[in-house]
Each structure stands twice: as structure tokens, then as C-alpha cells.
Design a protein around this nucleic acid. Structure first.
Lengths: 344, 344
DNA sequence: CTGAAAGCGCTAACAT
DNA sequence: ATGTTAGCGCTTTCAG
């Protein structure tokens, strides 16, 4: 097991000082070509690579971003994680993952753990935090950005899709489609995304003088969504919804399957189904789900931007809630109004 | 932005030495109750938490495991990632993610990057490495375990499902089902998993005096799998396969959709489809895919075990390739032989 | 541009 | 059980 080669060895071999070597490996350096050459050679010969940990320790910047995620079962998150990690890697940063599953205790504990790692920033994906912890991060100078969740804590960055606009759009679409009995299956009611989607959806309905015909809670869980669908649709034809907006795709798939395979309903002839997220399976032909697209690329880009704005200019940064436009993707699970504008 | 509180401040406040505080925060400590109390109080008052980075630096153990992943689109990986991260967290370790997407350059570069982080171990998920790098890790004393990929480098730990047994099982199942024209759609041919599945599948076929009726390559890509299915099945009924084994579920869904929605074939009446992985969507009723289950829980458990075996006892550890039994999950996408043994 | 020197915050012998 | 003393490998003033 060969010794780890240190900066000191390189310095000796190159016949320069330790700091010279350090400078050589520092992007914004100021090293003469001569010194640079000597260092380069010595480093190559020795197979030297700077120790990131030591560098972090000495400089106070770890170039690590803590990411806490809760639901990888919702396929929006793996996608986001991949893009996030890639984007961060491109900037020389890396992602340290913290699962916030039930087993891991509450978020605040996880946050403490993250802070222990001297991360340069924290991204909370579909996770809310106490204002206590938020304050703690702020006083520690650690930037936080919420991904796909908003929170009413001032000065905390958040990026989501425009959930309200999305919810409204679905309502308009469903009404334009001539649906008379419009239902909603909610996600976890603690989620800001769920609340915004629903609020705007209902507002648009009542704005048109209509009421929600039925409502159930699926809690972003497949099992609960199935049960909700069963309960909601196991009634005489005249009393059953002719359209249902499901708070996310993941639940929508489950709902569709109950409707088609358990209850023998046709989609969209008997009932239109609309989801939210546009995860890849929504495009699979067996589902072909009409849904609101959360543009992962843009959301990630904004998240990264918000993060580095805070890292690079902690003083002038003004964290805010950015909402990415969320288009309705027309597919086959919901009747399309004749006069509905098509893209292009 | 409040100062970070250090071990020294705690020591002063508690009226003990720095090392006493250090010991207090070290699991296998030896501190008198008296000292412990003083330290606990001081630490609490100050809101002190040990700096993980400094600890890593001084002790030489970072308690970080580098994970490199390539395809998060295959839903087997998010699942594995989640379980892995959770399992590691439970042991006080954390996962530093490295995406090995095309953009990130080749694996060897990524590996160097990981090594720079002084990780205590590396897990390679569905990624192969050069024997050069393998050697480098070994001489650096950094344990590596391959997840869902095996490699013929001696002394390197790998955990996979029993791909050969799985492939064989599918062949037997399909033959027992009376299929006459059995086809195979391959994954990326560089993957050991793909090769093992196919090899055993074909061996079982030829062992029964049968030949593969058709073969195409899907490269673990949805688009290529679709094209493969089109090419393979766009022929007169008598010349088309009556069963197809697809190298993973992800491609199998695409194949099913082409067969059903483009070519109007019935599954399993006209053609049986079998996949590999048993990712969650395989159980969704719109697919209801008969498939070989990769038991993520067990695979992760073995991966973690192999990792810590090497971390805890670097000398006696004997890395090997462990293969997890992979049961055939009977669903509706393939005809079930009358005499096929059922579980229980 | 370069080198000397002082840490970053903590652990790990070693003595006591 | 506790304190003392060296570092871990690197960055960063500060002189020159």
C-alpha cells in the first residue's frame, strides 16, 4: 500500500516551496512558467493529486453540497438528482446525499448532520424545514435552497414549477373539455406544491361558477391513491366524476389502473385523468398521461444558479422563490377540447 | 454570522483538556462521568458539534463512500441508491455521488476525482473499471465493490443477482410454456450482466436442442429497444417470435408498447414477454410484466457487508463475487405453463 | 513571483 | 482517566 504523496514531497522534488506547489494547483494562481513546469513534472512523476479534504479544511470551503431527498419513488426525483449532480460536478462541486426517510429521524436532525460536514450549501428536495434550522443555517452562513417545495420563511431560496398556474390550467382544460363532474385527488397536504396545485385548481373552478365534484387524499402514496380512486368511482355512473386531476403522475398511474382494470372504465371516454410532473412513464403508451410538465432541466438550472448566487456573493444575494412555467402536455388520458390551442 | 465553535472553546469552558472533549465525542471513549458531564454541558451551551472534516483529516477516515452511477433512468438504480444510502447512513457513513454520464469523461477520471476525496470506499453501480484503476485503489487501500456488475479482476468484490440462473430460468419457463420461436433482445453487450443473462439463456435453449429464433440489440436504451422490436416483429405471423426475453424491464416496457400499440399484437396470446429486474413499474397493471426479480434489499445488504468487511478487516477480507438468487416473478405478460410450480 | 510561518479543528500516541 | 504534544495536508497572510 503505497504512501500517499503530499504536497511537501512534490515541493522537495521540484525544488520549490510548498506554497509554490499549492499555487500551481490553485486556479487563480500566479506562478512563473518556470516554476509551473518544475511542479508539473514533479507532480506527474510522483502521481500527486491534491487532497480535497485537507484543502477543504484549510480553506474553509468543502465544495460539497448536501442534498436531502425523501421520495426517490417519485421518478421526478431521480431525474432531478441526476441533473443536479451533473450540473454541480461541472462546477467542481459534489453532492453528499442524505435520505430523509422516516427511519432517519426528523429533518432537523439530518440538517445538523449535514452541517457537521461543513458543506458549502444545502439543497432540500421535497422537504420542508423548521424556521429554527433555517435561522441556524443563515447564521452559519450556509446557503439553503428548497427544490420543489416553497416555504414562507423570508430570505430562503426556493424553486418550484408554477404550481398555481399549473393547477389553474388543468381546471380550464377540463372545463373546456365539457366535463361536468370534476374531481381531485390530493397529495400530502403538508406539501406546498400540493396545496398550491389544489388551491388554484379550485379557484379556477369556482371562478367559473363550478364546484369540485369530489375530493380524496392520496398522500402521494400509490396505495392510498388506489383506495381513493376505488372509493370515489365505485358509485353509479351518474354520480361518478367524469374527470379527475391527480396531484402527481405517480398517483395518477395507480388511479388509471384502478379505473381501467378494476372498474372497467374507459379513459378518456368515461373519465379523463390528468396528472402533474410529466415523469418519463407518463409518456409510455400504456399510460399516455395528459399532465403538467415540471421542467426538471430548468428547475435544476435555477436551483444551481440560486445556490451559487448565495455562495459567490453572500451579501448581495437576495434569495427568492422562482417558479418555472409548467406547460400542459396533451396526451391521451383526457378528452381534448375541439378548440384547445395546440402548440407550435 | 456566528463564529463556529471549536473543540478548544468547549474544553476551556468545561475546564478540561481538548482531548477530554475529543474523547467524549468518540464512541469508544473512556471518560469519567464527571468529565463527561462537564463537557456535555459546555458543548450544549455553546451549541458545539464536532467538525466532521477536521475529524476526517486527523483520523484518516472520512466516513464517506463514493458512489458512481451511470443510469438513473433504469429505475432499479434509484431504488438501490435509496437503500444504499439509508443503510450506510445507519452506520454513520454517507454517500458522495458521482454521475458517470457521458459528459463526465471516462470512469477512470471520475475515479481519480473520487480518490481525491479520501473516501473510505467506493461503490461502482453498473460501471466497469480498468484494472489499472483497480490496482491503484488497492495500493491506496481503498476498498471497491461493484454493484450489479462483475468483472474478472481478481480480489475485487462484486455483487450481482445470479444472472446466469436467471437467464436459464427464463429459457426453461418459455420452453415449458410451449413457445416455438423464442427471441432475445440484448442490453449493452459490454455489461457483464447482459452477457451472463444471454449466455445462460442460450445455453439452456441449446441444451434442450433448441436455437434462438431471433436476436437484436437494445443496448439498454428505450429507443433502440423499440426499434429492435419493430424490426423483429414486423414480419408475417409465422415468421415472428412467439416469445421474447428482454434483457431488462426498462426495455421490456418499450417492447411491449411497440407490440401492442404499433403492431397490434396481444400479450401474451400472440407473444410472451419476459423482462429482468422487477422494477416497480413491472407490477403496474398496464404492464404486469413477468420478470426476474433483482432483490435490491439483499443486493444492497451484501454490498454494504462486503464494503465493511474490507474497511474493518483489510487484511483478512477476501473480496469475491456474490450472486443473489433471482426468482422469476409470474405475472401476465407471458403464458404460464400448466404444470409450472407455483410459490408457497 | 516566491518562501517562511502560522494555522484550519481535530485525533492519537505518549506520559502521567 | 486525563493532559501534553505532535501532527493530518493544505491554504494563506505576510515579507521580501
Amino acid at each position: 500500500m503505497s504512501e500517499k504523496v503530499t504536497i511537501l514531497q512534490v515541493a522537495e522534488r521540484a525544488g520549490v516551496s510548498q506554497s509554490a506547489v499549492s499555487r500551481f494547483f490553485t486556479p487563480g494562481a500566479s506562478v512563473s512558467k518556470k516554476t509551473a513546469d518544475k511542479v508539473r513534472m514533479a507532480a506527474e512523476d510522483l502521481g500527486y493529486r491534491p487532497n480535497v479534504l485537507a484543502r477543504a479544511m484549510a480553506s474553509g470551503r468543502s465544495r460539497i453540497i448536501g442534498l436531502v431527498v425523501a421520495y426517490l419513488e417519485n421518478y421526478f426525483y431521480p431525474e432531478a438528482l441526476e441533473k443536479l449532480s451533473t450540473a454541480l460536478q461541472a462546477k467542481g462541486y459534489h453532492v453528499l446525499v442524505f435520505m430523509a426517510s422516516q427511519t432517519a429521524g426528523n429533518i432537523d436532525q439530518v440538517m445538523e448532520e449535514i452541517l457537521d460536514h461543513q458543506v458549502d450549501g444545502i439543497i432540500l428536495a421535497s422537504v420542508a424545514m423548521s424556521s429554527d434550522i433555517s435561522a441556524r443555517c443563515q447564521q452559519l452562513g450556509v446557503p439553503v435552497v428548497l427544490f420543489n417545495r416553497a416555504q414562507d420563511i423570508e430570505g430562503i431560496a426556493a424553486v418550484t414549477s408554477d404550481n398555481r398556474a399549473g393547477g389553474r390550467r388543468v381546471a380550464e382544460f377540463l372545463m373546456a373539455g365539457g366535463h361536468q363532474r370534476i374531481a381531485y385527488i390530493a397529495g400530502w397536504e403538508g406539501a406546498s406544491t400540493q396545496r398550491d396545485r389544489e388551491a388554484a385548481f379550485r379557484e379556477a373552478l369556482s371562478g367559473a361558477g363550478r364546484d369540485l365534484f369530489a375530493r380524496a387524499v392520496g398522500n402521494f402514496s400509490v396505495e392510498q391513491a388506489e383506495q381513493a380512486a376505488r372509493d370515489m368511482f365505485s358509485v353509479p355512473a351518474g354520480e361518478r366524476p367524469d374527470a379527475v386531476f391527480v396531484a402527481n403522475d405517480h398517483m395518477a398511474f395507480a388511479v388509471m389502473d384502478v379505473l381501467r382494470f378494476e372498474l372497467g372504465l374507459r379513459i378518456p371516454e368515461d373519465v379523463s385523468v390528468v396528472g402533474y410532473d410529466d415523469v418519463p412513464p407518463a409518456a409510455w403508451r400504456a399510460y399516455n398521461l395528459t399532465t403538467i410538465r415540471q421542467r426538471a432541466n430548468l428547475m435544476v438550472a435555477e436551483t444551481v444558479r440560486a445556490m451559487f448566487e448565495q455562495i459567490d456573493t453572500p451579501d448581495t444575494a437576495s434569495p427568492c422563490h422562482v417558479q418555472i412555467e409548467a406547460p400542459l402536455i396533451l396526451r391521451g388520458s383526457a378528452r381534448i377540447p375541439d378548440d384547445w390551442p395546440t402548440e407550435g
